[in-house]
Every structure is written in C-alpha cells, then in structure tokens.
Computed example of a mutant assay.
Amino acid sequence: MPLSDLQIKAFRPSGRPFKHSDGGGLHLLVSPTGSKLWRVSYRYGGKQKLLALGSYPTVSLLNTRAGGKRSS
C-alpha cells in the first residue's frame, strides 16, 4: 500500500533502522536517530542495487515518486 504524507510524519525511531515500502522498490528508511531517508532498490545486470534519493522532508513524497527531484 502506498505511503501517505501523514503516515510518514507519524513514523518514530526505534532501536533499529526499519523500512516502509511505497511500492516499485521505493522505500523510506527510518534510522534510530530519527532521520528518514528515501531509497530505491532495483536490479541491473542481474545484481541488486540500492540508490539513495535524499532525506525526508527535503525530498518530498511526490518528488520522490516523480524521480527524486529536489523541492525548491
């Protein structure tokens, strides 16, 4: 199920990093320090890859879905 902005704001840090999926390989990583990082998993040449897109709220949910463009 896709994430909403309200859900993302409600995520609180815990003792370990955890991921919340938005679909299509896109997920939000919430670290124990409270930072929220956008990442996308994909395969290239048969190998698993991970691309960091930026931190929330600097890179919004809509911008992340549109390709990771930074908001002004």
Rank of each mutant, 00 (worst) to 15 (best):
S31L: 15
K36C: 05
S60M: 03
R12M: 11
L3P: 04
L6D: 10
S21L: 06
Y44S: 06
S14W: 01
P57N: 07
L37E: 01
V30G: 00
R12Y: 03
G68Y: 05
L6E: 10
K36D: 05
L37P: 00
V30R: 02
M1Y: 05
R43L: 04
G68S: 01
S35Y: 07
P13K: 02
Y44M: 13
S55G: 14
L28I: 11
G45F: 09
L3T: 11
T33I: 01
L53P: 07
L51T: 00
K47L: 10
V30D: 00
G46D: 11
H20K: 15
P13S: 04
S71Q: 12
G15R: 07
G45E: 14
Y56G: 11
R16N: 13
S31I: 00
T58Q: 10
T64N: 03
T64Q: 06
K9P: 06
Q7K: 15
H27K: 02
G68P: 07
K9E: 13
Q7R: 09
L3Q: 09
Y44K: 03
R16D: 08
G54K: 08
S71Y: 09
P32Y: 05
W38T: 02
T64A: 15
K49V: 00
F18L: 09
A52H: 05
R39H: 02
W38L: 07
